[in-house]
Design a protein around this nucleic acid. Structure first.
Lengths: 150, 150
DNA sequence: TATATACATGCGAATGAGTCGCAACTAGAA
DNA sequence: TTCTAGTTGCGACTCATTCGCATGTATATA
C-alpha cells in the first residue's frame, strides 16, 4: 500500500477550520479502503456525524482538492460521471480500469516519475496535479473474451 | 501537428451507417482546430446540416468512442464537467492544462510509449484507452504569479 | 472567559451535461 | 423497388454538482 499523507494533521497545519463535519469527512476519506465518490463519502461520514449535508461534502472536497491534499479521479467514467477521491500519496501512481469487470488497479513505476520530470522540463510547466488513467481489459477478462470470441 | 486518422474513411470501412448528420458531425470533428465539447460540436455541425439534434451528437460520439476512432478528454475539468473530443492520433500524447489561463498544450515523448508498454506488461492488462492529463501553471502564468506573490 | 466575526453549514431550489422512450424516418442490403 | 434494422428528433427525464441565503460556530482577540 502506498504511503498516504495524514489529512487531519495536515489540515490543522494549514489552518483549515476544523468543524465536526469536516473531521468526520476527513477521517472517512483517510480510512477508506476503496475510492469513494461523493455519495458514498456522505453515507459513510454520517456514521460518524449524522448531521452532514451533501453540500458540505462537496464544499469540503473542494477545499481539500485546492490544497492538494486529495486527488480527484474519473476512473474512466466506468460508472457514470461521478468523481472519486483518494488521499494524495507520496509517489504518483496511475489507475487501471477494466471495462469488463470494473476492477481498479493501481500501479507505480520509476518511468512515471521520469515522465513527470520530462513533462515539466521540456514544456516549462509547473505541475500541480497529474492524472493518468488507463482503460481496457484486465488479464482475466481479456482471456475470457479471447476464449469466447476467437 | 500529430498525424490523425481519417474518420470518414475509417467509418465507411468499419461499416458505420453514414447518415447526413453523421457525415456533418464527423467532418466537423475531423477539421476542428481545438478540442470540441458536445455543445460546440453541435453548433459547428449545424452549419453543415441544420437538422442535427443534441441527442444525435451524443449518440454519434458514443459510436466513435466505442470504435476507438476518437478520444474523450476531461482537460482537468477546467470549464465544468463537460467532455472534449479529438480524433485519435497515431502516437499517444498527453494534455497539459494551465489552471490560470486555461491554455491546453499537447506533448509526446518516447517515455510515454515506454510507460505504456510497461503498464501492459507488468500488470497483464490489455490497454484500450490511455488518458494522461496534467494540471498546473504554464511558464508564463507561473512567472507572473512568482512576481506578484514572492 | 466572553465576544466578535469571518467562515461553515443545512436546506431546498436550480443548473447543466448527458440519457431515454418512442414514433417517424432512411441507408443500404437483397 | 422493397424491406428492415438501424437512426433520428423530440421532449421529458436523470443525476451529479452548485447556489443563495438565513442560521450556526471555530477561533482570534480583548
Amino acid at each position: 500500500m502506498l504511503k498516504r499523507h495524514d489529512l487531519l494533521q495536515e489540515a490543522a497545519q494549514q489552518g483549515i477550520r476544523l468543524t465536526a463535519q469536516r473531521r468526520a469527512l476527513i477521517e472517512t476519506i483517510q480510512e477508506a479502503k476503496s475510492h469513494l465518490d461523493a455519495e458514498s463519502l456522505l453515507q459513510l461520514a454520517r456514521k460518524r456525524d449524522a448531521n452532514i449535508d451533501r453540500a458540505t461534502v462537496y464544499r469540503t472536497l473542494d477545499v481539500l482538492k485546492r490544497r492538494g491534499m486529495i486527488d480527484e479521479l474519473d476512473l474512466m467514467h466506468l460508472n457514470g460521471e461521478k468523481h472519486y477521491y483518494e488521499v494524495k500519496t507520496q509517489k504518483d501512481h496511475l489507475h487501471l480500469a477494466c471495462f469488463e469487470c470494473g476492477k481498479i488497479e493501481e500501479f507505480t513505476t520509476p518511468t512515471f516519475e521520469k515522465l513527470k520530470r520530462e513533462i515539466a522540463d521540456k514544456n516549462d510547466f509547473s505541475i500541480q496535479v497529474m492524472r493518468l488513467e488507463v482503460g481496457g481489459l484486465c488479464g482475466k477478462c481479456a482471456a475470457r473474451k479471447e476464449a469466447s470470441t476467437g
